[in-house]
Simulated assay, not measured.
Amino acid sequence: MIQSMTGFGKHVIQLPTKKITIEIKSLNSKSLDLNARIPAAYRDKELELRKTIASSLVRGKIDFGLYIEITGDETSSKVNEGVVRQYMKQLNNIVDADQLALLEMAVRFPDALKTDREDIDEAEYKTIKEVLQTALKEINTFRSEEGSMLEKDFADRVGTLQNLLEQVESMDLERQATIRERLEKAVADIKANLDSNRFEQELIYYLEKYDITEEKVRLNNHLDYFMTTLNSKDSNGKKLGFITQEIGREINTIGSKANYAPLQQLVVQMKDELEKVKEQMLNVL
């Protein structure tokens, strides 16, 4: 079953003095591109968190955010009293203002607040890892649901391609007869005396040149292989992408050999369907 690279997962948990929120968003990308926003206190754990995310999501442009909001009396920031008093003293020499106004100006300057770096609370970090796992389950569920819709779309479009290929096969005999008739008419128009055996040999040569039997067989095989891969257990967008390229090659070759307007119209329809498959394939994990 295929998965989309597009997804969203979010989980929130409330602790006695903190609210922990984890958000994960993903879009399509050729490889894993992980952008992480993590509080400074947890920078030492960033590599571990990245590995956890990478092992679960594998590929895509990932935005990961860890947000910790203080909801109790706990705070890691304190007023730097000495610095603030110095600012107020210097400001008093510049402007004539009361103490409250000086204080309002002073606390806006650099270093007015100091933040003490706290050691990581292992119990809190354990909770963060649990919240992360829940968010990853949510985004993978989202990806699977999106993948189900993509899978149905691919199956419908490949079915359309197979129907068009059947039309190509039924039209091929008529096409060959038309090409033969066209060549015979061209020879008759020039009113030349030609050796009938030599003409027949040349005719066979041209008919073989325009023969699309191998392309039809290969295209049918590629379409079957695409469906087999689509229905496999693992999501493999890159492999499906390679098969799509091979399907495109066979369709292009049939178009270049067609030399018959009705068949070329079918080829245009096949190309249109395949282009839609390619566009959606960019989203497959």
Score class of each variant (00 low, 15 high):
residue 166 E to Q: 15
residue 253 T to P: 10
residue 57 L to V: 14
residue 125 Y to I: 12
residue 182 R to I: 12
residue 240 L to I: 08
residue 237 G to R: 03
residue 195 D to T: 04
residue 189 D to F: 01
residue 5 M to N: 06
residue 104 E to C: 06
residue 211 D to P: 05
residue 231 N to S: 10
residue 239 K to H: 09
residue 39 P to F: 00
residue 64 F to P: 03
residue 182 R to V: 09
residue 149 M to I: 13
residue 210 Y to P: 09
residue 195 D to R: 01
residue 16 P to K: 15
residue 128 I to Y: 00
residue 218 R to N: 11
residue 28 N to I: 08
residue 50 R to L: 08
residue 238 K to D: 06
residue 184 E to C: 07
residue 104 E to Q: 14
residue 231 N to C: 14
residue 254 I to K: 04
residue 81 E to V: 09
residue 220 N to K: 15
residue 169 E to Q: 12
residue 240 L to H: 02
residue 32 L to Q: 03
residue 102 L to S: 05
residue 217 V to N: 14
residue 68 I to W: 06
residue 260 Y to N: 13
residue 172 D to F: 04
residue 254 I to G: 15
residue 267 V to D: 07
residue 104 E to A: 12
residue 58 V to E: 07
residue 237 G to T: 04
residue 101 A to C: 09
residue 131 V to D: 10
residue 55 S to D: 08
residue 118 E to W: 11
residue 130 E to K: 06
residue 188 A to C: 09
residue 239 K to V: 09
residue 207 L to E: 12
residue 65 G to V: 11
residue 118 E to H: 11
residue 239 K to T: 10
residue 177 A to S: 15
residue 126 K to Y: 12
residue 221 N to L: 05
residue 142 F to C: 09
residue 6 T to A: 04
residue 143 R to T: 09
residue 105 M to Y: 11
residue 174 E to Y: 10
residue 112 A to R: 03
residue 190 I to H: 08
residue 95 V to H: 03
residue 204 I to G: 05
residue 240 L to D: 06
residue 129 K to D: 12
residue 260 Y to S: 05
residue 103 L to V: 01
residue 91 L to R: 00
residue 2 I to C: 05
residue 193 N to Q: 11
residue 204 I to C: 01
residue 13 I to G: 09
residue 89 K to Y: 07
residue 12 V to H: 00
residue 259 N to Y: 04
residue 270 M to P: 06
residue 38 I to L: 04
residue 199 F to T: 00
residue 267 V to F: 04
residue 220 N to D: 07
residue 187 V to R: 00
residue 38 I to G: 01
residue 25 K to H: 10
residue 112 A to H: 03
residue 59 R to L: 04
residue 88 M to L: 08
residue 125 Y to D: 12
residue 61 K to W: 00
residue 220 N to A: 15
residue 215 E to V: 08
residue 33 D to C: 08
residue 36 A to P: 08
residue 136 L to N: 02
residue 8 F to V: 08
residue 171 M to K: 06
residue 278 K to I: 07
residue 255 G to D: 00
residue 177 A to C: 07
residue 47 L to W: 06
residue 124 E to R: 02
residue 180 R to A: 14
residue 238 K to Q: 06
residue 34 L to S: 11
residue 224 D to P: 02
residue 9 G to A: 12
residue 192 A to N: 08
residue 51 K to E: 14
residue 117 R to E: 14
residue 262 P to H: 01
residue 250 E to S: 13
residue 14 Q to E: 12
residue 258 A to L: 03
residue 29 S to W: 05
residue 51 K to T: 11
residue 166 E to L: 11
residue 196 S to I: 04
residue 272 D to A: 15
residue 221 N to T: 10
residue 189 D to Y: 04
residue 233 K to F: 02
residue 226 F to W: 07
residue 255 G to Q: 02
residue 145 E to L: 10
residue 244 T to N: 05
residue 200 E to K: 00
residue 266 L to F: 03
residue 169 E to R: 10
residue 265 Q to A: 13
residue 243 I to P: 01
residue 24 I to N: 04
residue 161 L to V: 00
residue 80 N to L: 02
residue 119 D to H: 14
residue 45 K to T: 13
residue 283 N to W: 01
residue 239 K to P: 02
residue 94 I to M: 07
residue 114 K to F: 13
